[in-house]
């Protein structure tokens, strides 16, 4: 069984990664780290660069956990996380969340909301400040 971690290269993604690895270790689960981008901007800071992707892979290898890093572009990020979770019969999805006002959510959309509503399994959310 697997745990799917939604990852972005910032404190929110790190929080999810941290908690996800903890859960994976205690429940003896495989880890799939997902990073995705709609890919409609020229530059997307949340899209992990090739070099950083290799670094991430090395970091995971160092922890000794059975893992895979999955990256895709040109997709809706929330949908992609849900899709990977369904495909791998995930037991748990872990994502980092940021505080956002209701208006902000209407304007910017919410990846977290998509994942929570559509995921085929329990979703664990975490704010970096509670870790």
């Amino acid at each position: 069984m697997t745990v799917v971690i939604g990852y972005v290269p910032n404190q929110y993604g790190e929080a999810a990664l941290h908690l996800g690895l903890q859960e994976a270790a205690s429940r003896q689960l495989r880890v799939i780290v997902v990073n995705a981008s709609r890919g409609d901007a020229f530059v997307d800071k949340k899209f992990v660069t090739e070099q950083a992707l290799r670094d991430l892979d090395e970091r995971l290898t160092a922890t000794g956990v059975d893992h895979r890093v999955h990256q895709s572009a040109g997709v809706d990020v929330g949908d992609e996380i849900v899709r990977v979770a369904e495909q791998n019969h995930a037991e748990l999805v872990v994502i980092g969340i940021r505080p956002r006002s209701p208006v902000g959510k209407v304007l910017m959309g919410s990846v977290a909301q998509t994942v929570i509503m559509d995921a085929p399994c329990p979703v664990l959310t975490v704010r970096p400040d509670v870790l």
């Binding site: 981008s37 709609r38 890919g39 409609d40 901007a41 020229f42 530059v43 997307d44 800071k45 899209f47 660069t49 090739e50 572009a73 040109g74």
Partner: peptide, 8 residues
């Protein structure tokens, strides 16, 4: 339309 971000 190209759909892939580029390294920043």
């Amino acid at each position: 339309l190209r759909r892939r971000p580029i390294e920043v």
